[in-house]
């Protein structure tokens, strides 16, 4: 028997790989897990949110209208808001909203071109978007689109997703032990920042088209709404309305393809009067 200590090749017992390479591979893997988990949670929370009774949603949003300086509306604006409410009520009937689900429209004094739906069936429409409406058909389209969001429970779904994402990221990062979630829920009154995804927007567009069909018997003018929004987006102040919505060109094309011919009606008198103040030269 021969006794010897042969030289062991260097690196026989450990990996020669660069440690940063391993870190990168592991981080990517972990990131993929996080992304999948967050998406799954968000989808699940969105589905669960649809189970929240509309009355509960309304209670959460109770403080919403009070945050607006309602008394600041002029007589003209109040008349226009009432007219818009009447249109929304008719749209609600046409869309066969369930009992108890009654959207409330608020006119917001502001030149930005924007309209959005939020919790509790509250719709916000700016003077800016009214001023840009070429005809009643486009106005019905935008209102029907927002009412459709309420019908589909999109605001509460968006809230559910947002809370789930925040809670998941908060739990994973270990920062802010749930305080973030409480903040998000506490800010429910300011949920003008709720974002809807493209599927929700597409569904609302389709519902708006069906509403137009029932209102007028034809859908002419629907695409004009999106031409207005596109023009507004081209200006120096892009409305946030656009940011999460399907590409406007695509929407115009889709709406245009779905349009059936028919006369375009002038804006209702109360709204036309308000617009005339904004555009005195016309």
């Amino acid at each position: 028997m021969r006794y010897e200590n042969p030289q062991i090749p260097e690196g026989a017992n450990y990996s020669q790989d660069h440690p940063l390479k391993e870190l990168a591979v592991l981080l990517l893997g972990a990131l993929a897990i996080v992304v999948v988990a967050v998406f799954t949670l968000a989808a699940a929370a969105g589905w669960l949110a649809t189970k929240i009774p509309f009355a509960t949603e309304q209670a959460w949003a109770a403080g919403l209208a009070e945050q607006l300086p309602a008394s600041a509306l002029s007589a003209d604006e109040l008349a226009a808001q009432q007219r818009l409410q009447a249109m929304v009520d008719r749209i609600a009937t046409l869309q066969e909203l369930p009992a108890g689900m009654s959207p409330v429209v608020h006119l917001v004094d502001g030149s930005e071109v924007n309209a959005f739906a939020t919790l509790g069936g509250h719709l916000f429409v700016t003077r800016g978007i009214l001023a840009d409406m070429p005809h009643e058909n486009a106005l019905v389209t935008v209102l029907a689109h927002e009412v459709a969001h309420v019908k589909h429970r999109d605001p509460v779904v968006a809230l559910g997703r947002g809370v789930a994402v925040m809670a998941a990221l908060g739990a994973l990062s270990g920062f802010g032990d749930g305080g973030v979630v409480a903040n998000q829920l506490g800010n429910a009154g300011l949920l003008t920042t709720l974002t809807f995804n493209r599927d929700q927007e597409r569904a609302a567009d389709e519902e708006a088209l069906r509403t137009l069909e029932r209102w007028y018997g034809y859908t002419a003018g629907a695409a004009d709404l999106f031409r207005v929004l596109e023009r507004a987006a081209a200006g120096h102040e892009p409305p946030e309305f656009m940011s999460t919505h399907p590409a406007t060109d695509e929407r115009i094309a889709r709406m245009h393809a779905a349009e059936t011919p028919g006369p375009l009606l002038p804006l209702p008198a109360e709204i036309a009067a308000l617009v005339a103040v904004d555009h005195p030269e016309e």
């Binding site: 017992n13 450990y14 990996s15 440690p19 391993e22 870190l23 592991l26 981080l27 897990i33």
Partner: peptide, 25 residues
């Protein structure tokens, strides 16, 4: 800290904890 962090990540996936292998060697 770097080795511990990489090893912690490795715990998610399993496999050779290469960051500790050099240390033990």
């Amino acid at each position: 800290y770097f080795k511990s962090f990489v090893a912690g990540l490795r715990n998610l996936f399993g496999g050779r904890v290469t960051s500790y292998e050099t240390l033990m060697d």
